[in-house]
Design a protein around this nucleic acid. Structure first.
Lengths: 207, 207
DNA sequence: GAATAGAACGAACGATCGTGCTATTTTATG
DNA sequence: CATAAAATAGCACGATCGTTCGTTCTATTC
């Protein structure tokens, strides 16, 4: 009677929907994506698309999850393949920069957009985002902490402050490049990064 | 016949509308504010409120202008009253921080929200915002430049980079405090600021 | 191929959006 | 107080929103 658990033709369309939704959300925001717009773009019916999710809220959460998985595989995992200490931190930063410029999110980093959008809107989407951002920040802090343990960085380095500052650099880059279209945005971000990194190197190049 | 140019009872309601619209926009975004919502909150009719502006787009632009005027009178002008160099830069930063926490914008800095929201949406609102942000950044750069000219800061200080980095600190603060509700957000921002300032002080406290 | 479960559709719902019109009320001026 | 003008209300419009329902089409399994 009960069919074997198989049967997953709709899974591919679900993936296609989420893929496009991530793109769209990066441009017009998480709450900006509408079922109707998504359906039209993908050549589906509103109701057919809606059936894949139970609500728009659930869709938004899944959009965040999809973006997170992609972030892990494109930024985090490759960066962690680098040797501990400065190379790993540098790889994190560079891949993070690339992620922001990725065509997969033509509107810039989805998390940046969602962070501002959801900061005053309680609900499952906000909760999911906060969790993801906390994870990301503590991952960065851990990477820095490992560098300190290896004596690659000064012992008085505050890993959490480092992670916070690195995030701020990213936000500054986003602002300069996406809103202001500043051609020096890249250089600005790198300069800020080098200053941050320089402040916690062990060897003080004294005078 | 033609009444003297006087007659300005509607001017006060217009101000009240914009005042509330700024509050609202800081929480739910510039495009989140709806005519109906504004009218209901203020006890006006949709059409009556709408008549004060020619379009929603015009309303958004005026919201930005209103916020800008307030920013100038609450942050910029008082800060410029401080002596050139470090005190003035420090005042800018502190007042900027206070501005973000102001009850007048319960959703955090309106410009931060609008920056992310409008970065991919061409139109007059975006144009206005870009102009305001450019003005603000160059004002900060000028203040730093004046400090350099006065030998308060190192001669090789890049004023525009400083302004960019200061903005990034602000964005990081916003992220930490508003989204993550991090109680250390304030301390983090101040630590970052001191590091930024320390890097361009003239006297190197060598080893 | 018959039976069955999953996927997609079409139509409709109540609500809200921005935006016009036309009255009516309120205000300022003579 | 009368009058002209400005400010606001009332009503309606087309569009779009998220969501539901019942049906149809398309796979999968026997």
């Amino acid at each position: 009677m009960r069919a074997h658990p198989a049967a997953r033709k709709g899974e591919s369309t679900r993936a296609a929907i989420l893929d496009h939704a991530v793109k769209l959300a990066s441009q017009i925001g998480l709450s900006g994506i509408s079922i109707g717009r998504l359906a039209e773009d993908l050549g589906l019916s509103k109701s057919g698309l809606f059936a894949h999710f139970q609500s728009k809220e659930a869709l938004q959460v899944q959009v965040l999850e999809t973006a997170s998985e992609r972030f892990v595989s494109e930024v985090v995992r490759p960066a962690l393949a680098n040797p501990r200490g400065e190379p790993r931190v540098r790889a994190l930063f560079e891949r993070w920069l690339d992620w922001t410029k990725s065509q997969k999110t033509p509107g810039g980093c989805l998390f940046v957009a969602a962070s501002v959008e959801l900061d005053d809107q309680p609900g499952p989407a906000r909760d999911k985002l906060v969790q993801l951002q906390r994870d990301w920040l503590s991952l960065m802090a851990n990477v820095v902490q490992a560098g300190v343990a290896e004596k690659a960085f000064r012992a008085d380095t505050d890993p959490e402050q480092f992670a916070h500052d690195l995030y701020a650099i990213m936000l500054g880059y986003h602002h300069a490049s996406r809103l202001l279209k500043d051609p020096r945005a890249d250089a600005r971000a790198h300069a800020a990064f080098e200053r941050l990194l320089g402040a916690c190197r062990r060897v003080r190049k004294s005078a």
